[in-house]
Design a protein around this nucleic acid. Structure first.
Length: 641
RNA sequence: GCUGGUGUGGCUCAGUGGUAGAGCAGCGCACUCGUAAUGCGCAGGUCGUCGGUUCAAAUCCGACCACCAGCUCCA
């Protein structure tokens, strides 16, 4: 007998030997059709699995992450089978499920072409029609090694050799195809229905650039054709939010062949920058920061002292002045340190928070450049906090709160990572432990969930990273808090303590936006170019209906200009429909239509880019409305009061 | 940097060996118009760069540059 408890607490009894899928069908016929995988006491199992004893059982469909992953993982196996049918000499590496689909890494005789992809997809569809059952079998290490040696799969042999000694080694077969795999899998290939191969790209074996580059094929799959179509449509829609596209359309910035990775900001992009910086200065002033500015080019000796010469040289640009070596700064910290060190400090002065909108240059590999998100020169909204050891936790929490406050203004969802000691670093393990623990404790005190990013810290200290998403869900590190016990040591920083002798301060490096450039990229994609009123490069466009309204419209524009609003007058000889369309496409928040009615009644007719025609109102009233919306940094227009 | 793909007017794209095309944008003229495209006309390109093959190259070949996707790396 078998006694099972479902997640809602229901208890069922079955005869021994019943399979998971039969239980699912017994509970609910629809579940029986949609179920993809089961979990017994939280451990996932194939639907053919026969449980016994007293167990808690969960069933998962495509609606659940667990079900989705199994569905995509099985899809990857079908892709590998198709590739082996068409290109038998191809060696198999690994093929996991990922966020929106799956991939498989192959080592083929020659790289795959777009035509190959189509053929592989067709073959996958054939395999799905064949409805081959996935069969699990376990084998000993020796049997597994023999099997994959005989199959001439060197990567699989390497994987098996690296498995822990006590590992249960399992394989899954469908038809003629067998792959090393822990599973679980769908009952059969016929469950897949809608699949699509999306792209080929190179990927290093085991993610290490010293290894051979393999060919990775990305794909996705769904239980219904309509869901696949919807996904593909959503991707196309998302691409319309791409900041590189909107940067051109809205004339915000450009990147030219003459300066790859060095963006040009156009007048409208500069409005965004300046508004962001204004906001930034206000927020930092409130929180006790003082602003400084340090030089872009500084002498080699400084970079040797800071450790950049040894640990960061790959990313730096160099120049000579009067035969002496200089470097273009890749970070602002050494400059900030020199400002701190330029005079003696008392313990009473700490913490000292020195903020700097600092332009840094870094040599990034050509292949990683990406619009404003990844560039070779950018402005960090940096600050260096010099503090007493006892002030560390409070200062970290202060920055965490600041980042949260700022991201909330834009309604950005974000996630947090804790990056630990990298290979290429300076300082003892003890110091690193101390710093890492301090960051971790601050996060835990704030109750913030975080992911650990091993070995991704800066060379001088561990960091908390704040990651934001772009239009396609890729994440970019923006805010970061780095705790540093090492630079104060290397620069021999000091403050005079209560006891009258010198002590070493602790340093915190931090950014909130991260870089203004990247932040503008994220901002643009988040709002699809329709920036909130306080940021919008053009806030109001005045649209006279006919030439005889130009004078009056010009007066309206002048009044708005005087009140401090960014206003444009569209005095082209075009129909008002045309002007409205253009203003809409430029995502101008407010349009004022000026015709005979308005001129006679001293009114303006207001159209909002989101809500359309708002009707007529006195200009004074409109100005009040704008002021309120700007001052509150509202994300959408405020309701009429 | 690596793998694959792409590069034609400001933007989107046709054109695959025989004299460079369209739409939008721009400019001119007419229309003077009420909440997402008025009509007509004009102008605009050494086809990414350099080299090669050919009687002839946007088209074929090579190198380089830039961009796109991904890998590795980062704000």
């Amino acid at each position: 007998m078998l006694k099972i408890t479902l997640k809602d607490g229901q208890v069922h009894e079955y005869n021994a030997g019943i399979k998971l899928r039969e239980i699912a069908a017994d509970i609910n016929p629809r579940l029986g059709k949609e179920v993809l995988v089961g979990a017994i006491d939280k451990e996932l199992h194939d639907l053919d699995y026969q449980p016994d004893g007293e167990k808690n059982i969960n069933f998962f469909t495509f609606e659940d992450d667990e079900g989705k992953r199994v569905f995509r993982h099985s899809s990857a196996h079908v892709m590998a089978q198709a590739v082996k049918r068409l290109f038998p000499d191809t060696k198999l590496a690994i093929g996991p499920a990922i966020e929106e689909g799956y991939y498989y890494d192959f080592d083929p005789q020659r790289p795959f072409t777009a035509e190959d992809l189509e053929k592989i997809q067709e073959e996958m569809e054939t395999i799905i029609k064949e409805d081959l059952p996935f069969k699990r079998f376990e084998l000993s290490r020796e049997e597994a090694l023999k099997l994959f040696s005989d199959l001439k799969e060197p990567y699989k042999v390497e994987l098996i050799n690296d498995l822990p000694l006590d590992a249960v080694i399992s394989c899954y077969s469908q038809g003629e195809f067998t792959d090393l795999c822990v599973g679980p899998h769908l009952p059969s290939t016929g469950r897949l229905k809608a699949i699509k191969l999306l792209s080929v790209a190179g990927a290093y074996w085991r993610g290490d650039e010293r290894n051979k580059m393999l060919q990775r094929i990305y794909g996705t799959s769904f239980p219904k054709k309509s869901e696949l179509d919807e996904y593909l449509f959503r991707i196309e829609e998302a691409k319309r939010r791409d900041h590189r596209r909107l940067g051109i359309d809205l004339d915000l910035f450009s990147i030219q062949e003459e300066g790859p990775g060095f963006p040009f900001f156009h007048p409208k992009g500069m409005v965004l920058r300046n508004e962001l910086e204004k906001f930034w200065r206000e927020e930092h002033k409130k929180r006790g920061y003082q602003e400084i500015r340090t030089p872009v080019i500084l002498n080699r000796s400084l970079w040797e002292q800071s450790g950049h010469w040894e640990h960061y040289r790959e990313n730096m640009y160099f120049t000579k002045i009067d035969q002496a070596d200089y470097a273009v700064k890749p970070m602002n910290c050494p400059g900030g340190i020199l400002v701190y060190r330029s005079r003696l400090h008392s313990y009473r002065d700490l913490p000292i928070r020195l903020a700097e909108l600092g332009l840094v240059h870094r040599h990034e590999l050509s292949g990683v450049l990406h619009g404003l998100m990844r560039v070779r020169c950018f402005t960090q909204d940096d600050a260096h906090i010099f503090m007493l050891p006892g002030q560390v936790k409070n200062e970290i929490i202060g920055v965490i709160d600041l980042v949260d406050d700022v991201y909330k203004i834009f309604n950005f969802p974000y996630h947090v990572e804790l990056s630990t000691k990298p290979e290429n670093s300076i300082g003892s393990d003890e110091i690193w432990d101390l710093a890492t623990t301090a960051l971790r404790e601050a996060l835990e005190e704030k109750g913030i969930g975080y992911k650990v990013n091993e070995g991704d810290g800066a060379f001088y200290g561990p960091k908390i990273d704040f990651h934001l998403q772009d239009c396609l869900g890729r994440t970019w590190q923006c805010g970061t808090i780095q705790l540093d016990f090492i630079m104060p040591e290397m620069f021999n920083l000091a403050y005079i303590g209560e006891d009258g002798v010198k002590h070493q301060p602790v340093m915190l490096h931090r950014v909130v936006f991260g870089s203004i450039e990247r932040f503008i990229g994220i901002l643009t994609e988040h709002f699809a170019g329709a920036f909130p009123l306080w940021l919008a490069p053009v806030q109001v466009r005045v649209l006279p209906i006919a030439q005889r309204h130009f004078t009056h419209a010009g007066q309206v524009k002048d009044i708005l200009d005087e009140k401090g609003f960014r206003t444009e007058l569209d005095d082209r000889n075009e129909k008002v429909n045309y002007k409205i369309r253009e203003a809409q496409l430029q995502k101008v928040p407010y349009m004022l239509v000026i015709g005979d009615r308005e001129a006679n009644r001293e009114q303006v007719s207001v159209r909002n880019r989101q809500f359309g025609d708002l009707g007529g109102m006195a200009l004074d009233e409109f100005v009040l409305k704008l002021e309120e919306e700007v001052n509150s940094k509202a994300l959408t227009p405020l309701p009429n009061s």
